[in-house]
């Protein structure tokens, strides 16, 4: 299997009900190799989160395609797409979105419910993952953990199913600069360790220096030919 972790072509998306002919997202091509890490920056309101939702198959584009590990995600429908996302895509959010009422380890195990990992191994694997990410109280509820630790639990959950692609949406926006630096390094190294491609979107300029590959939404493209084909994402 040598297909790209992520491959986007001619993606066009406009919010439902918007009458303007302009696209909210217009991305001609974007490709991420297995294990590759990339930062996508854009000003606030440029549709960064929407792009991630399109990639994760949570919303459908009007045009174009998104392939993850060679599988066009929008070609899948209903439960099949949800299962595919659960098994192949990990997501990290600015506000973590941990499940309340569930302990740290249960939050990680919740992600494994969709995976093909044998049920008997869930707990052990989740504990191991949390331990490697520096969580020493895996039975604590999210609200009992510090913000930095909550972020680590969220990272562990995103990696629980050994995804080919991790999508991180402003993962450090809730953290102070010092913690943000630690967090992004942690995400990068954890993804690297598991050969998961990482697509991180952020408007934080401080993040830029931490990624070798950086793109700006609106001028996306990693070669000259592609760059000419890139269409500028319109503002709403």
């Amino acid at each position: 299997m040598n297909s790209a972790a992520l491959s986007i072509s001619n993606l066009r998306y406009r919010y439902p009900g918007v009458q303007s002919p302009a696209w909210t997202i217009a991305l001609d091509t974007l490709s991420l190799a297995r294990g590759e890490q990339m930062l996508l920056t854009a000003a606030s309101g440029r549709g960064k989160s929407t792009l991630l939702h399109l990639i994760a198959g949570l919303i459908d584009p009007q045009e174009g395609s998104v392939s993850i590990d060679g599988q066009g995600i929008h070609g899948l429908h209903g439960p099949a797409r949800d299962r595919f996302r659960g098994r192949h895509v990990g997501m990290i959010f600015q506000t973590f979105h941990l499940l309340h009422g569930f302990s740290a380890v249960e939050n990680v195990m919740a992600a494994m419910m969709i995976s093909s990992i044998p049920a008997g191994e869930h707990r052990e694997r989740a504990l191991g993952l949390l331990s490697r990410l520096g969580i020493d109280r895996p039975l604590a509820k999210p609200e009992e953990l510090s913000v930095g630790q909550q972020q680590r639990v969220a990272v562990a959950r995103a990696l629980a199913c050994n995804p080919v692609l991790v999508l991180a949406d402003e993962p450090t926006a809730s953290l102070d600069p010092e913690n943000a630096a630690v967090a992004i390094e942690l995400i990068k190294s954890a993804c690297h360790e598991r050969s998961a491609a990482l697509l991180c979107v952020s408007h934080d300029p401080a993040m830029a220096e931490r990624f070798e590959r950086r793109e700006r939404l609106g001028v996306v493209g990693n070669n000259a030919e592609a760059a000419t084909a890139v269409r500028k994402a319109s503002t709403l």
């Binding site: 949570l58 209903g78 299962r83 996302r85 659960g86 979105h97 499940l99 919740a110 969709i114």
Partner: peptide, 16 residues
């Protein structure tokens, strides 16, 4: 709703 959204991201289908 937020919890349901998270479960959906984790791979839970609408019927589930």
């Amino acid at each position: 709703r937020r919890q349901i959204a998270v479960l959906r991201v984790l791979g839970f289908s609408r019927p589930r």
